[in-house]
């Protein structure tokens, strides 16, 4: 997230939302999701791209995709 949003001091918690991060707009959100796909070897459905509203929800989504992959 620090790399995507160009914010070296960024500290994200489960409650962090896009409105807490200056450069977290729709395009950078897509960049983040595609970077997460590459990092974790997963693939989001288009409908999942905009679903998470907090970092916590995003982590849960990644975990669910990884569970599906290993099942």
């Amino acid at each position: 997230m620090r790399d995507i949003f160009d914010e070296e001091d960024l500290v994200a918690t489960d409650d962090t939302t896009a409105s807490d991060v200056a450069e977290w707009d729709s395009t950078n959100h897509v960049r983040l999701m595609v970077a997460l796909e590459a990092e974790f070897g997963i693939r989001f459905e288009t409908s999942e791209i905009t679903a998470p509203e907090t970092v916590g929800e995003l982590i849960a989504l990644i975990a669910s995709k990884q569970d599906l992959k290993s099942a």
Partner: peptide, 15 residues
């Protein structure tokens, strides 16, 4: 335009 036209294409472009 923003949500249903551009966003899916942005996703393809980034991938």
């Amino acid at each position: 335009l923003c949500e249903s036209i551009v966003l899916p294409e942005e996703l393809y472009f980034r991938r």
